[in-house]
Design a protein around this nucleic acid. Structure first.
Lengths: 204, 204
DNA sequence: CTGTCAACTGGACTCGCAGTACAGTAGGAA
DNA sequence: TTCCTACTGTACTGCGAGTCCAGTTGACAG
């Protein structure tokens, strides 16, 4: 049964790498199977079909991303307790992290999934939706803490501002992929950071 | 020969609608052929393969988007000659336009293409790249005009700021697609607008 | 009136990939 | 010894992309 976990997650590792590099559609099951040194039957033993694989990958990816954010902002909080500065430090860390990734960035699976929509079933789409709503909640919470201390210079919709973190990252990754440059996402985050500095300039 | 143009652009119309709704991969040639009332042979007479179709669609789409931006900011300029206010009005118009689209928005083909990368050949990828670089140039130009009149409160990279327009739109559309909401893109644009207001607050 | 050409039709075929079915097997747990 | 999990291996279906090609239709040119 350790074997099971082992093979399953080996498939997921291989599939994730391939999908992030070439896209879901361009990654064939035969290819995964060959790389994992298993038979086609073995693959379908673990995953009913490609949708099941997509779902499992998304779940893992979202989980990892959440852990990453938890971690990042926990470290930021250690460095500065003020909610605004914590946010700013966290974003800086995020930008640095994105920049350090040699191949650019794995590229967010969310956008990829969103744009290949009909290839996936409702389960995958709902997972995707919940992930973004989760990030909205997370960041809105943080912005509300900031707004409790700093009065925004201009009125903003907190949900939309929360979404803007995801949006700026996703948008930056789209640019990065399309342009074949490697620091667009981190630059976009840095611009967003100065936005926040301007928006929450003075304490209440 | 009118027939040729006619059929070709009918294929493009049908393909574009299908691709924006379901994605490129999920749209089969058989399906396009059926909707256009032509034979498979007829399709391949006009387009060598699916890549040629993608290229033609992208060209048309980018051209249309450029015309749209020209138009939008020309109207904005009529309303206010000041470069900052022209930008702000243009973005407002863009946001309204996105919101008025009943089905959400056709969804930007750029992001879609970027994330299905390996499905396309170098020609398609390069087209995509050039489109984004074109927008970067356009918006950077506008921001430089603004910066000549208004001093930015914080230093910003003008290329990155130019990219941010595309990024915010793309990112907003990704959110919109994934969340199945319909005003995320326009909300994101409005947030970006208040960013610009804060950034370029006082005249030199 | 004839020939040419562009714009198709229609059918047959190859190939790669997803997914199904199912029979068989190796190895550990009860 | 038996049962179960985690596979292997093979064979088959079906779909969609792309190829090949022979034949048709209608406009226009000489």
């Amino acid at each position: 049964m350790d074997q099971k976990v082992d093979t399953r997650s080996r498939i997921l590792d291989i599939a994730e790498a391939a999908v992030l590099e070439k896209g879901f559609e361009a990654t064939s099951i035969d290819e995964i199977v060959a790389a994992a040194n298993i038979s086609r039957g073995g693959f379908f033993y673990h995953f009913k079909d490609k949708n099941a694989l997509a779902r499992a990958m998304l779940e893992r990816y979202i989980e990892a991303e959440n852990v990453l954010y938890d971690d990042l902002f926990a470290r930021a909080k250690e460095l500065n307790d003020d909610p605004l500065h914590c946010m700013l430090i966290g974003l800086k860390l995020l930008a640095e992290m994105l920049e350090e990734m040699p191949t650019g960035h794995p590229g967010c699976v969310i956008a990829s999934t969103a744009y290949q929509d009909r290839l996936f079933d409702e389960g995958v789409r709902e997972l995707n939706r919940q992930a973004i709503l989760g990030w909205r909640k997370r960041f809105r919470g943080m912005f509300e803490e900031i707004a409790a201390v700093y009065e925004p210079r201009e009125p903003v919709n907190m949900d939309a501002l929360g979404d803007m973190v995801s949006g700026v990252v996703e948008g930056g990754l789209v640019l990065q992929r399309a342009l074949r440059e490697h620091n667009n996402a981190s630059e976009q985050i840095m611009l967003f950071r100065t936005y926040l500095k301007l928006l929450f300039a003075h304490k209440r």
